[in-house]
Amino acid sequence: MQKILIPTDFSDNAWNAIDYAMQLFRNKKCTFYLLNTYTPVIPSGRFMAKMVNGVRIVDAVRDASEEGLQKTVDRIKSKYRNSQHSFETISSFNLLTEEIKDLVDTYGIQLIITGTKGASGIEEVFMGSNTVRIIKSTKKCPVLAIPQHFEFITPTEIAFATDFNRFYSTSELSPLLELAQMFQATIRIVHVQYGIKALSELQQFNLNMLRRYLEGMEHYVHTVSELNSVSKTLELFSQELNIHLLAMLNYQHSYMEQMTREPIVKRTAFHTQTPLLVIPELGMEGVAKDNPKKKGEVVES
């Protein structure tokens, strides 16, 4: 995680995400790419002003974006003075999600850190905010969403929510493992069930594989009954065990997908203030990277 992208609209919650990032990676050499996108309304009617005080509207918005980014970098350097951190600023006339996808490919971004808005914190992720659009559109690197009012805590307790219905590749788990190793964190695997029942043969196999990945790291498995909704259940679990970061994979039928599709009435009680690490599904591409085969080698299914 040496190349980190942080979108900002210069709001307080965006700064909070930057603040979290600087502290999370305080002992790591990183390049942070600060992004601000803008899409000014271009007047088309002949009676609508295209200029303000002799300056084209598009140019004025671009100048404000570039100035805001530079002020943000100055503020970071003034507060943290970390010689291991370098910064690049990107001001773009583009849609946020489209620009992020381009930058992930162009710069090889390894992590996106973004803030969430609203008094209910992470609930906003599932209610049409920029964060949920970033999560849904980003297929190649994880997204770390920081609640608006969350104050940095070294993540020594990390929860990984999963239903064990899917095989995990090491490429997919590497962001989780890297953070856990950085802070010698305990990983708490949490499985939400609607009614407690024994794991299927497939689920047990995937759990065993997960435990193999976590060998040498302190980890525990927790099975909990669903309370009203998956989101509410994970919220209470995080509160009771003082979880500092909640991680999950984003794939079809995953907890992440379930939470985005839960009726709003069920999500209104979801007021967690826990940072959320969403890891995209890499599928067979990730498995292939984990298990490179030699030319002519046959892999049994």
Rank of each mutant, 00 (worst) to 15 (best):
residue 241 L to A: 05
residue 277 L to Q: 03
residue 185 A to Q: 02
residue 147 P to T: 13
residue 169 S to T: 15
residue 108 G to C: 10
residue 287 V to M: 13
residue 248 M to E: 00
residue 244 H to Q: 11
residue 72 T to K: 02
residue 27 N to A: 07
residue 207 L to V: 01
residue 276 L to Q: 04
residue 134 I to T: 15
residue 277 L to Y: 01
residue 169 S to A: 10
residue 293 K to Y: 07
residue 194 Y to P: 00
residue 240 E to N: 13
residue 132 V to M: 05
residue 16 N to S: 06
residue 185 A to K: 02
residue 99 E to V: 06
residue 60 A to N: 07
residue 94 N to S: 09
residue 119 A to Y: 04
residue 266 K to N: 14
residue 265 V to G: 02
residue 116 T to V: 14
residue 54 G to P: 02
residue 141 C to Y: 02
residue 46 R to S: 15
residue 81 R to V: 15
residue 10 F to K: 05
residue 171 S to R: 15
residue 69 L to P: 01
residue 239 Q to D: 04
residue 168 Y to F: 10
residue 44 S to N: 12
residue 15 W to G: 00
residue 170 T to W: 05
residue 213 Y to G: 05
residue 114 T to G: 01
residue 284 M to S: 10
residue 175 P to D: 09
residue 196 I to Y: 06
residue 286 G to P: 01
residue 143 V to Q: 07
residue 281 E to S: 11
residue 96 L to Y: 07
residue 201 E to N: 04
residue 281 E to V: 07
residue 149 H to V: 06
residue 151 E to M: 06
residue 293 K to Q: 13
residue 97 T to S: 08
residue 95 L to A: 05
residue 106 T to P: 03
residue 47 F to E: 12
residue 115 G to Q: 06
residue 232 K to E: 06
residue 274 T to I: 15
residue 213 Y to W: 02
residue 37 T to W: 01
residue 254 S to M: 14
residue 99 E to S: 08
residue 265 V to D: 13
residue 7 P to K: 02
residue 179 L to H: 12
residue 114 T to H: 01
residue 177 L to Q: 04
residue 77 K to P: 09
residue 228 N to G: 04
residue 148 Q to L: 08
residue 251 Y to N: 13
